[in-house]
Amino acid sequence: MPAARNTSREDRPEILNVGIDLGTSRSAVAASNGQRHWLESFVGWPRDFVAEKALGQRVLFGAEALHHRLAVKLVRPLTNGVIRRGAERDMTSMQELIGHLLALAGASEAHCIQAVVGVPAEALRVNREDIRVALAGHVERLMVVSEPFAVAYGLNVLNDAMVVDIGAGTVDFCILPGAMPGEADQRSLIGAGDEVDRYLHELLLERYPATDFSLDMARRFKEKHGFVGAPNYQVEVEAPVRGRVLKHDITRELCRACESIMPPIVDTLMAMIARVEPEFQARVRQRILLAGGGGQIHGLVAHLTEATRDFAPCRFSCVSDPLFAGALGALGLAEDMPARYWEALPRLDN
């Protein structure tokens, strides 16, 4: 991770535009130098000096932190779409994660970094200042936008459309009115991917009480096989029962868990559309984009189309690159932003 930057902008004439998608589950970065990277939003702190010596690192990130989760204290800086508060390590973890993302993007002391960060709409509402604190010292200039808006900007879908970003912590809804969406154009639901994981975990423990299912296993099952509606195949997974690895059929539980978040999504979706000017509603209904990790749930488009049929016909599309859609949109904003606007922003120093 690069150390906090302490030289003036004038000393670093080379500008690096960066788009960061700071997600509850995964974070991605895209930079104007062509670098694109993502990692799971986990930060691992070695539990003691023995672990630190064995791991050879002061702090671990993403999959590596998850892999060594027995030896580290895992911190997920964003929970339910907002930056965790309560311990100093929460904010420090966020700062470390951002520093690591920038390092992956090839940022160095030689760069003057201009960053646009997409965050869950909830974080934008609740602790926007915390985000700026977390970025201070890492970038020179910063703009913060909501994730769904960043996605929409990257896709060039700026008016009479809607983005539904189904993330881990929140489901964010954003109406694109042809201007920057305001508070009334956005809404968040707390029940999202993490809720599905927890529910699936409960269901699995209920059906197979003797099997050792972990929450992380439930998350991986969901990400690999998650579906709504009719199953295309029988989902069988391996898990240990008293030390012996056995196959388990989890088709029904997986479907129940994934479908558990659908009713509030449909309700909120239609409530949001109902608030658009009547003559524009039909147009918005035909341009609903599904983004975020939850957008990859198999059968989602068909399920939502069917579920909204009683209201009015809706047309859903999934973004083709949900992992980087937010980061690329944020990068697009950073690059399109006129230099005079960047210059006019206050610098983020230590």
Binding site: N156, L300, F316, S317, V319, S320, F324, L328, G332
Partner: peptide, 9 residues
């Protein structure tokens, strides 16, 4: 994917 929209499209 049921249908797709490409970034930058």
């Amino acid at each position: 994917w049921e249908s797709a929209v490409s970034p930058g499209g």
